[in-house]
Amino acid sequence: MNQALSAGREGRSDNSGRILRWVKKPIGLILILIVLSFLVFALLYLAPGDPAEKRLTSQGVAVTKEVLDAERERLGLFRPFLVRYGEWLLGVFRGDLGVSFKDDLPVTPKLMTGLLKTVILASASLLLSLTVSFPLAVLAAWKKDRIPDHAVRLLSFFGNSLPNFLISVLLMYLLCIRIRVFPVIATGSLQGLFMPVVSLAIPMTGRFIRQMRAEFLAQLSEDYVGGMRMRGVKERFLILNVIRNSLGHILTIIALQIGTLMGGSVVIENIFRWPGIGKLVMDSVTARDYPVIMGFVLIMGTIYVVVNQLADAGFHALDPRGQA
């Protein structure tokens, strides 16, 4: 009897595997982040011209050989690539992403102000999207191949097929010009937040519904659903169990969508002039202000990688099966 109990729990009591996992994960994370930083640093070399030239052109200085060489000397460009990468990386660890080519101000505070605004926008649309898509996905899965399912799938299909810049342009046309309910340019106000949030949320909702519905359907075909029915468990508890068991995968789905959300917010922020990090980066692209672009990729990449690792950890916490 006790034997059976301990035999069944073997996976649980064997902690060494678990500890290994907890050590391996952060190391993998750090490795990915180092690769990311290297790629970002290398980005600067992808661009035509060298940093000194870019810096001078970005500031509108006439580029002559002498000025260029002086600038190169000042920026330390005559030293080896890896040394410069190391120095830059050390700076990054201290939270120093360099100074802007445009106005010589440090890049980090600029990006952080923008990031805060972007986080507000992104989390609002994520929240809106989830509150809409989650119940709809449950409904569609529950009523598979019936009218509600067809309706929800149609909505999700169109949401999924609309680029967010198009949604925002059409929304602008309808709401601001035709009906005149909203201001065209988003100020920091709540009213200004509405249109960018909706523009970001619509395509995301389409994708969420699609993926969550598939996940719910997968859960519904599991054996335990039939088993619970044989015990006469009420459908409402059944839905609860199905949702509970889907949460792990849904967490992963959300984490992956955050990547798309980041790209989308760059577009939306520029349309509605929302002063977030995406607006900042597009302004920097126009001004050829490379340190800001590098900082942007580094910050967004880090957030994305960390969020996905957290979602992975959350998945294993919610579904501890198959864990060594």
């Binding site: 054996d223 335990y224 039939g226 088993g227 619970m228 044989m230 015990r231 006469g232 468990v233 009420k234 508890f237 609860l240 169990n241 509970r244 068991n245 919610l318 579904d319 501890p320 099966r321």
Partner: peptide, 26 residues
């Protein structure tokens, strides 16, 4: 019903007490 494979008839990742509670309450 005691099914052929009872392990499959339970939600594998939900605590047993919760599963008992739901069934009894139903």
């Amino acid at each position: 019903l005691i099914p052929q494979n009872p392990a499959g008839s339970f939600n594998p990742v939900r605590r047993l007490d919760a599963q008992f509670r739901e069934t009894l309450k139903s």
